[in-house]
Design a protein around this nucleic acid. Sequence first.
DNA 1: CCAAATTATGACTGTTAGTCATTTTTTATT
DNA 2: AATAAAAAATGACTAACAGTCATAATTTGG
Lengths: 212, 212
Amino acid sequence: MGIIERKEREKEQRRNDIVDAAERVFLRKGFENTTVDDVAAEAELSKGTVYLYFKSKDELHYAINLRAMQKLNKIIRGVYDEKKDVVVNLEAMGNVFIKFAEEFRIYFEAILHFNSKSLANIEPCMTHDLLSDESPISFLVELIDKGKSKGEIRSDMNSILIVELLWSQIMGVLQFVFYKQELFKMFNITSEQVLTGLFEILKNGVRKSLEK
Amino acid sequence: MGIIERKEREKEQRRNDIVDAAERVFLRKGFENTTVDDVAAEAELSKGTVYLYFKSKDELHYAINLRAMQKLNKIIRGVYDEKKDVVVNLEAMGNVFIKFAEEFRIYFEAILHFNSKSLANIEPCMTHDLLSDESPISFLVELIDKGKSKGEIRSDMNSILIVELLWSQIMGVLQFVFYKQELFKMFNITSEQVLTGLFEILKNGVRKSLEK
DNA sequence: CCAAATTATGACTGTTAGTCATTTTTTATT
DNA sequence: AATAAAAAATGACTAACAGTCATAATTTGG
């Protein structure tokens, strides 16, 4: 009786089709200016049907965010090179994150969007997703632990704390660069300078005594 | 001919009254859940009148953001102690920023709100405001310059860049703590630990060799 | 071929930002 | 004090959009 399974698959497929349509509209009209009607039209479905597959607009947004995190996760894990130092690996991961943000604008926008949303307002599953293997967090914690045992990373700070600090600092800077571009242009500061500077601070801090 | 001036003052006063009313409603209902009708009712004015003084809801929000930045600015400048090291001053400023965020929740929410908005969508004056003496930015740039000449701060990085990096990193972490509290609770990480950790990273980075 | 279950529809509701013709109040002039 | 002109205030109205639900179309299993 594979009918139930097939139906299950078809339902999954339709959900995916809607998310695909949403991505296309977002790409055309931007994340914030897209209405549910737009998405329904693009998916060649009625609005009611969209609401059959997603409880709310936010949940549709969240589906994109999930895809984004999964892609980012793969990319970050993909550059890991166990022969290299942990700190070198971290920097490489930071760099592919930047590349990811440039290449998959919509995905990055989705991540930014949920970065400034309270967990309380979103599906409770978000907390779970953030910590699952679909997210880079768990992998990064392991990496930091490895760095500690190799004597590369300070061991007087909780690994989870380190990862969340690094993550939120990078997100903070990317958000600033993304939303306040004009400010940097005004001072002839390029995105590259900002990001090089960020990694420099993250690695070495601002103290003169630590200047290379 | 003081009539025009008096009218000017009255207009200013009314604008202020509306912002005062808005603050009260925000405190009751939260920043995001407040409608313009709510604000008008609280100010005992019609909605149309509110729109006479503010072009849009966003501009009303922005007025709160301005007040918030002015208050923060005063507080940050207030703790400056020229006898102390620049890095010590920076840390003290970071700490009063945290206290500010706790004490003036609405103001902090307003700052967070505009932190994740594109400059392009807001009044063009925002860029100006961000750099004026009403904002802590210009003061911090001077402080970093002083740190450089005293040999405390690395001089191989543009001072504006340093300030914007520090600012956006701190905002990133505060945003994360604010919106993702549940995550920290789950790992028994307190806000204090996060912020101590942040300052530690900002000062020293994550390298073992720099561990105190 | 039919009835039950599933899936899809789009007209409808509710909410809220923003507008504008009209009214009320204030100012300047006689 | 009476009146015309200017300024300020009003609230009913529009437009846009998220979300709902009674009804219709389609699929399934007998």
